[in-house]
Design a protein around this nucleic acid. Sequence first.
DNA 1: GTGTTTATCGTCAAGCAGACGACTATGATC
DNA 2: GATCATAGTCGTCTGCTTGACGATAAACAC
Lengths: 254, 254
Amino acid sequence: MSPYDPSAYPPFAVTVDLVVLTVRRHALCALVVRRREQPFQGRWALPGGFVRDDEDLSMAAARELGEETGLCASDPSAPALDNGAHLEQLATYGDPRRDPRMRVVSVAHLALAPDLPAPRAGGDAHSARWAPVEDLLGQEGGFGRDGEQPAPLAFDHARILADGVERARSKIEYSSLATAFCPAEFTVGELRRVYEAVWGVALDPRNFHRKVTGTPGFLVPAGGTTTRQGGRPAQLFRAGGATLLNPPMLRPEV
Amino acid sequence: MSPYDPSAYPPFAVTVDLVVLTVRRHALCALVVRRREQPFQGRWALPGGFVRDDEDLSMAAARELGEETGLCASDPSAPALDNGAHLEQLATYGDPRRDPRMRVVSVAHLALAPDLPAPRAGGDAHSARWAPVEDLLGQEGGFGRDGEQPAPLAFDHARILADGVERARSKIEYSSLATAFCPAEFTVGELRRVYEAVWGVALDPRNFHRKVTGTPGFLVPAGGTTTRQGGRPAQLFRAGGATLLNPPMLRPEV
DNA sequence: GTGTTTATCGTCAAGCAGACGACTATGATC
DNA sequence: GATCATAGTCGTCTGCTTGACGATAAACAC
């Protein structure tokens, strides 16, 4: 049989799902949308949609990201766009039973964005919101403030979200990606609070300052200072050209 | 429109392609098969095939790996199988024009295997062989011995192979995956030659020995010695339980 | 002014990595 | 059997990085 006879292979639907992460109020948050249809009607899910006929996977992911957040994905060739978020492919999920109605293969993407105004709801959602990752995944030490455990995410989206969070946690160790969570100009303290929120640990401000300012190409001085965090005015920095940190900044263990 | 109306989404074919790497004669090699059909007839390509109707992506990859090499993919839940190779998802490639005939999304997987006897040809290939990665990708400092540049791989397989090689190169830095290239029992020197072949650098035998034997859980003594590499008999080890190396073994820079 | 907050600089000790000397145990060669 | 080549293993030294933490600086609140 010819492997390209259209009747010789099973038909699939291909979607992109997005793990969009940001840091708000010292917590790592993910963008979720409420499902309007069966199955999992009314449950929260990751934003996503079908890949179109003439679209590359990364184009589909960038389009969905724009539809859901207004963000513009900064592709590696032009990373200096205003309001640009980092976007990369995460993994692909294709369990035959992950969608009860048909065979859907989902190519998940990971986006890292600075803190944004309230999200706008996209087409396929009643509403959209930023939810703390801890609440969405449970387990990690505590549920909502009132002990209430929210309904788990639709489909296998909890797994996808967990994979995306783990990717983000490990990737800021050896790359300068944590700056994608910050506005264009930021202080060392703000960058440190990003690391603390993503990793869920407290870091020594002095050692952190030494490490990030001592890594060539990580940060470049932007020239001004700010007191928006209170306390002594802090120097403003921009992300430098370096993408890889060598040596890496390892998470404290245990 | 309902997003699950079968006529509302474009149909895709989904395949898995395999980057199977091994180390032979001090060189990092990849498994390639010769294409029997158009397009790219007669050219070398990565092994792969269609995902079946009832198969998960990892199952399809494991099946293809078995068909092409006889290897048994050691899934994380039962990693102690004889002749088991490491298998993980690599990335997904879905450019609309990557296959000239139809829309094909390929979920590439990366497999790391110990040195094997000659590969057996699978169904969709005239023949299969282990080819040095350097020859397949060119550029990296030299072509074949006689200066001949082989034809590039079919489709976007050169890109997929390059991504897989880079994944392997970076992953042995912070994990114990390099042992997947070794037989069940191996010496420190054999493990070092794996690192040297994958990274394409020379490592100091004394520092390497100190590092790997000093990392808890990386290696466990197997009890015997061997002289199969010549010279003084070397202790035999087995892969230990640790999967993550902390601190990592970083590639020498430049 | 006093206290609080955050930023930034410095110091010290422990740990790790790179460079490299020295010794050991095999097989190959004369 | 002496010598040599090869590969494995153990140590030493030095410089760099890190983690713990003291001290000072510059803002704001009262």
